[in-house]
């Protein structure tokens, strides 16, 4: 219990240090753009593929379930709400933790193991400013963009299967979605995606920065990144969903 509290305290203090380093890091937008590319663009294929497949599964499952109640016309709104409010942000965050989070943690862990972070300190360069803050900001910027792409592909996948394969009326599908999904639902998804972006990227840079400088230590840091990010994303999702009710 005490160890858990100590960990929470350590992560919180680290988060404050990262926030402090973000302000000067903003003066070097090139570094941040590079990290948006590393975290975001390199996760794009897996996010697009998973978004499409999740949408297709929803098209099948929801069309079948709703047909039992004679409510196939609600397919568009059901898929839209599920994706925008829950599945999009949560699944993207879990995929992000597995793809970009592990990559960040191992990269920073290896930088520590090979003395690159120490070398920066000795060269009077703060690694928090040069390494951690740009990666943190890059991840936080990339996540909402990835969620948006996941949602678009998800809705396309639902439409593809629900409308084209299962025979739900296309006009009903789109008009129901347009009528029932409002800006607040989109806003909830955006807030969640930003929070999950902070959580996943913070866990990755924290674990990498504190990795024991050995092969085993770096491996452990990547494992911990995935586990802690996944658990925290689900916990925060519950709290945010409750807050938005």
């Amino acid at each position: 219990m005490i160890a858990a509290l100590r960990n929470v305290g350590a992560v919180t203090l680290f988060f404050l240090r990262v926030l402090g380093a973000c302000v000067p890091a903003l003066a070097r937008p090139g570094l941040i753009v590079r990290q948006v590319y590393n975290s975001g663009a390199r996760s794009l294929i897996i996010i697009m593929l998973c978004g499409l497949v999740v949408g297709m599964i929803m098209g099948l499952a929801f069309a079948d379930m709703l047909a039992r109640f004679g409510s196939e016309s609600a397919l568009g709104v059901a898929a839209g709400l599920a994706l925008l409010k829950e599945l999009g942000p949560v699944l993207t965050a879990l995929l992000f933790a597995g793809r970009a989070g592990t990559s960040l943690a191992s990269e920073i862990g290896l930088m520590r193991a090979t003395d690159q972070l120490t070398a920066m300190q000795v060269m009077a360069v703060d690694p928090m400013r040069h390494v951690i803050a740009p990666r943190f900001l890059g991840g936080v910027i990339a996540m909402p963009l990835l969620v948006a792409i996941f949602n678009i592909l998800g809705i396309f996948g639902t439409q593809l299967v629900g409308v084209q394969l299962m025979g739900v009326d296309a006009g009903t599908f789109w008009s129901q979605m347009q009528n029932q999904v409002d800006l607040a639902d989109v806003g909830e998804g955006i807030v969640k995606s930003v929070v999950f972006g902070v959580v996943c990227t913070l866990m990755a840079v924290y674990q990498g920065f504190h990795a024991v400088p050995t092969a085993e230590g770096v491996g452990l840091a990547t494992t911990r990144t995935v586990i802690s990010s996944s658990v925290l994303v689900l916990l925060f999702d519950y709290m945010l969903t409750a807050a938005f009710l």
Binding site: L110, M111, T114, D115, Q116, T118, A119, M120, Q121, V122, M123, A124, D126
Partner: peptide, 19 residues
């Protein structure tokens, strides 16, 4: 301390080049 470090150079055991 950072100002002092700017007046020093360190060659690390394995170079510690930024990869």
């Amino acid at each position: 301390l950072f100002a002092l470090r700017r007046r020093m150079g360190v060659l690390f055991q394995h170079g510690a080049l930024l990869t």
